[in-house]
Design a protein around this nucleic acid. Structure first.
Length: 570
DNA sequence: GCCGTTTTCGGCCCGACTGTTTTCAGTCG
């Protein structure tokens, strides 16, 4: 529902822009973003407190609240319909093509009657676009390339999976002669779940050499633009990459500026303006005088804020907290001592218990919890009670072999059945160090039933952790219907841990749910859900996810030694 | 349309690069 309303408001903003209306579109755009970021269903907000509750959401005033009400009641917004009448084109689809914005889309509609992506592709392929006044062959080519890209990728990449490739590129740039500094900015520095493009900031003595190298890298498929300070390419994996050459004295300003996010920066620039300054990528200026630009710290400080970790820069309260000196002391990337969800070759993992234990030790961990699937997940060869008993004995042997410096803990990922019962008996569960429970079937239940199902599992005295609590798989599967507030409340009551699953396409719980849990005072585990030793590297993505949810070290059970960690379980 | 430790009215974030045509609009980040 939130996404639906957000996309309508966004479209209204674009259409008003086309009509030449000033400022009003910005208000709609801001609200669309606010609703997208909202962790609560907007329908629920309205049910709870009507128009008043809607107006409490920052950016929503009387006017937009009434339009939202209209949508919730009638399923449409009259003003939206009327705007659409003037511009009967699929704006969203057309502007998702690189280089095509609203103005271009409307121009093409007026001149060629193009309404859809398909029609755009046909017009470009038959050379109709380059014949138009104001357009040329280059624009037409660019449109075709944009469409190809769109077909290939859908536009966004899961950061955890893409990270090694990005690091490879940054590594190459670091070797170019004259280079002083190379840093990724944008959503990569903010460690978002998915990224649309790669923004690279570089300090170098030899800018032209850097640009020449960058645009001719093996990974580059085509060059959009190449300038003195800024170049823009498409990589072979389909992702766009920007490289910006920055003066070392303005690196802090550039880093702040290009890290974003957009709404954090808009807010920050507004604050700068209200203090009589101007903030851009070159520095913080009072008149023509540069008063801060070398580091992010000094810029934030001059504006009255503590430095804010990139992961939480999204204008959802971090600026207020930074002003008051009340930012959370976020969990750090080296803070985890163990991994609490690991599958082995006893079920659907590829490595043996011993292999993965050795790899975990190499990664600097002190312990792992083995959590193979259980019997009702037949497709993964889930273990029954007998199998679990057998594995317990095997783990004892391995622990003896590994000695006292590393510990393999006994666990399982038991299935939560449709009625909330578990597929392994309590007697067996009692023998395990730590039990995770998860939903792997019957995803299509009502919110109420699914919430009750998981709550019942949490009531089991042996269930310590709920694994990947919402069940989503990014770019593949939506989360099942779940009342997350109720789950958090019940986690608090039953002392059940909720997992922050670090596997990149799960990233489950997601950041705003985590933040709600933090506010409620529950504890989390961070684990990889590794099915092979190489997956252990994803632990840092889980930490990033936790940081985005304002998690501190004390909130996560596996920042403790295994002995202390076990004490925190039921 | 929204918002307010200088405002309930008068403001609303900033700059590089391209393609196109001759001074700039559009797009993007």
């Amino acid at each position: 529902m939130n996404d639906k309303i957000a996309s309508i408001l966004k479209e209204m903003a674009v259409l008003m822009d086309l009509k030449g209306i000033d400022f009003k579109p910005r208000a709609f755009e801001r609200v669309a973003y606010a609703i997208e970021e909202l962790s609560e269903d907007i329908k629920g907000v309205y049910k709870r407190g009507g128009l008043k509750a809607l107006e409490e959401i920052p950016g929503i005033g009387k006017g937009i609240a009434e339009r939202i009400e209209e949508f919730l009641k009638t399923g449409k917004i009259k003003e939206h319909r009327e705007l659409k009448k003037d511009f009967p084109i699929n704006i969203d689809e057309l502007t998702s093509v690189e280089g095509v914005g609203p103005k271009t889309a409307f121009e093409l509609y007026k001149k060629l009657g193009i309404k859809t992506l398909k029609q755009l592709e046909k017009a470009a392929k038959t050379g109709k676009i380059s014949e138009l006044e104001g357009f040329g062959p280059k624009t037409e080519e660019k449109i075709l390339r944009g469409i190809e890209f769109l077909k290939k990728s859908g536009g966004r990449y899961i950061l955890g999976f893409t990270m090694p490739y990005i690091e490879e590129i940054l590594g190459q740039l670091k070797k170019v002669p004259g280079v002083k500094k190379v840093e990724a900015a944008g959503s990569i520095r903010r460690m978002q779940e998915t990224v649309g493009d790669l923004d690279i900031l570089v300090v170098t003595d030899k800018p032209s050499k850097m640009m020449d190298f960058f645009v001719s890298m093996d990974e580059v498929a085509s060059v959009h633009s190449k300038g003195r300070t800024k170049s823009f390419v498409k990589l072979k994996i389909g992702m766009d990459a920007d490289l910006l050459v920055i003066d070392k004295d303005s690196f802090g300003a550039a880093s702040q500026y290009f890290t974003g996010d957009k709404y954090h920066n808009i807010k920050l620039r507004e604050v700068a303006m209200s203090k009589g300054y101007k903030l851009n990528e070159y520095g913080l200026f009072k008149g023509k005088k540069n008063i801060a630009s070398k580091t992010e710290e000094e810029i934030y400080k001059k504006l009255g804020f503590d430095w804010i970790p990139p992961e939480i820069r999204n204008n959802t309260g971090e600026l207020d907290a930074a002003k008051k000196g009340e930012l959370p002391n976020l969990i750090d990337y080296g803070d985890l001592k163990g991994d609490l969800q690991i599958q082995t070759d006893w079920t659907d993992g590829v490595n043996s218990i011993e292999e993965i234990a050795k790899e975990a030790k190499k990664e600097g961990l002190e312990y792992i919890l083995i959590t193979d699937h259980t019997k009702s997940l037949a497709i993964a060869g889930g273990l029954d009670e007998k199998g679990i008993e057998k594995q317990i004995k095997e783990i004892d042997k391995i622990n003896e072999k590994l000695g006292s410096r590393f510990k393999v803990l006994k666990g399982a990922e038991v299935n939560i059945m449709k009625d909330g019962s578990l597929d392994i008996d309590d007697k067996t569960l009692a023998k395990l160090d730590c039990v995770g429970a998860a939903v792997h079937s019957n995803f299509n239940m009502s919110e109420k039933d699914m919430t009750e199902r998981i709550k019942r599992a949490m009531d089991n005295p042996h269930v310590d952790i709920i694994f990947h609590p919402t069940g989503r798989v990014i770019q593949k599967r939506e989360a099942y219907e779940l009342d997350i507030d109720e789950i958090i409340k019940h986690a608090k009551k039953t002392k059940t841990i909720l997992e922050i699953n670090a596997y990149p396409d799960r990233s489950d719980l997601k950041d705003d749910h985590i933040r709600k849990g933090i506010d409620a005072g529950i504890k989390f585990s961070i684990s990889t859900d590794a099915h092979s030793a190489s997956h252990l590297q994803y632990l840092k993505m889980g930490i990033a996810q936790a940081r985005r949810g304002w998690v501190e070290k004390k909130d996560v059970i596996n920042t403790r030694t295994w002995q202390e960690m076990l004490k925190l379980l039921k």
